[in-house]
């Protein structure tokens, strides 16, 4: 499988990263090379192998249902590029 310019456009859109047309050719080549390397995996026989879910061999621990956080709107908004009246502000979204 090799990645062409259209695929670059498609995944760049999914990843929300602007890619200039001038870069697409180069990127397509770079990504295709990485993909070529990755595809050497096809040589490995994985029939009947369970995918590894995690390297930690334990059961997941869970929290008690208590309120231990929040109540810090100013800290939450402090790093925001734009905020008003306690809200984060973004360019208008059309629903």
């Amino acid at each position: 499988m090799s990645i062409d310019k259209n695929t670059v456009t498609k995944i760049a859109r999914l990843a929300r990263i602007k890619v200039e047309d001038s870069e697409k050719e180069r990127l397509a080549v770079e990504l295709s090379n990485i993909l070529k390397m990755i595809e050497e995996l096809d040589a490995v026989n994985t029939d009947g192998v369970e995918p590894l879910t995690s390297v930690v061999q334990m059961q997941m621990h869970a929290r008690e249902d208590v309120v231990t956080d929040g109540g810090i709107p100013e800290k939450i908004l402090k790093n925001a590029p734009e905020s008003t009246a306690g809200f984060f502000v973004v360019p208008k979204v059309v629903e």
């Binding site: 990755i38 995996l41 096809d42 490995v44 994985t46 192998v49 369970e50 995918p51 590894l52 879910t53």
Partner: peptide
């Protein structure tokens, strides 16, 4: 790709 890699990871 991803699932194949997870299987290889198991190996």
């Amino acid at each position: 790709y991803y699932n194949k890699a997870r299987k290889v990871r198991k190996l």
